[in-house]
Design a protein around this nucleic acid. Structure first.
Lengths: 143, 143
DNA sequence: GCTTGACCCTGTAACGATTACAGGGTTTAG
DNA sequence: CTAAACCCTGTAATCGTTACAGGGTCAAGC
């Protein structure tokens, strides 16, 4: 059981590329890593946990700014939890809005695809629909 | 009824910013616009229709590369319609996959948010869950 | 005539998160 | 001793859009 890891091993353990880890450090989500005499970054378990935190947040679709806010809250255990709840709830609403929009898009695209009866491009209903604004934009206010 | 429009008027008519129009031209989705003596771009009805095509494709979530392919097909009316169908179908599948992923994310995030009971950050379940990989990653293979 | 504001032009950089280099040094295994 | 695999920094690419900077053109109003 090693107590420190170089960036490559951290990458394999966390599923986070070395480039991303360095990027997080540059952005301030990670504190400057300790360096060996040759300048190699070394990470301990706490750093691994922090990178895992970031990765998990990213896998939930949180942006790095939100994750940074959550990390800042985590670094100050005495602050109120409501701020964290706000960030997560805000993101959840953002997600739900995006899902709704994508579903509307998919429904419209499904309709467009179904209109295709084969044949030549000149008669293709997919292309015709894209040219004709009034058809596909009628159901939801696009543009 | 004018027969040509300057870029600003095209922008208001199509809902596409002048910057984007110039960008589409640089990328080759639009042919080089005719210029006035002073170098101002001028557009006719056909160009307006083409920009509308692009905008509509974008509003459906198509990327500019796919739109360029569709425009190329549209420019060659004798080609087979199947290629257009492929592009649209491929994008639809892409959309559906993204929706499914976002829904899984939202479900997980909803669960995380519900665990928050208020209080101090030190006890916040939102932050704890982000630190703890095993909890939230169990349901779908994240990472 | 002269200024003000609204246009237009080009080229470049920013956004967010990641990836891919180039160009160089270090470690490790054969 | 050498080749592969690793590490470093810094820069540029990706995607589509927006925002500049720095300059030219044209209309209306004084």
């Amino acid at each position: 059981m090693k107590n420190t890891y170089r960036i490559g091993e951290v990458a394999t353990r966390t599923g986070c590329s070395p480039e991303s880890i360095r990027h997080y450090e540059k952005l301030g989500l990670l504190p400057p890593a300790k360096r060996s005499e040759q300048g190699y970054r070394h990470y301990d378990q706490a750093a691994l946990a922090r990178i895992g935190f970031i990765r998990h947040g990213r896998s939930l679709g949180l942006d790095l700014h939100s994750i940074q806010e959550l990390l800042a809250l985590s670094d100050h255990p005495d602050t109120d939890c409501g701020a964290a709840d706000d960030i997560a709830t805000r993101h959840l609403q953002h997600l739900e809005a995006r899902i709704a929009k994508l579903q509307a898009l998919a429904a419209e695209l499904r309709q467009v695809v179904q209109q295709c009866r084969g044949g030549k491009t000149a008669d293709c209903q997919i292309i015709q629909t894209l040219y004709d604004h009034t058809l596909a934009c009628s159901e939801h206010g696009c543009g």
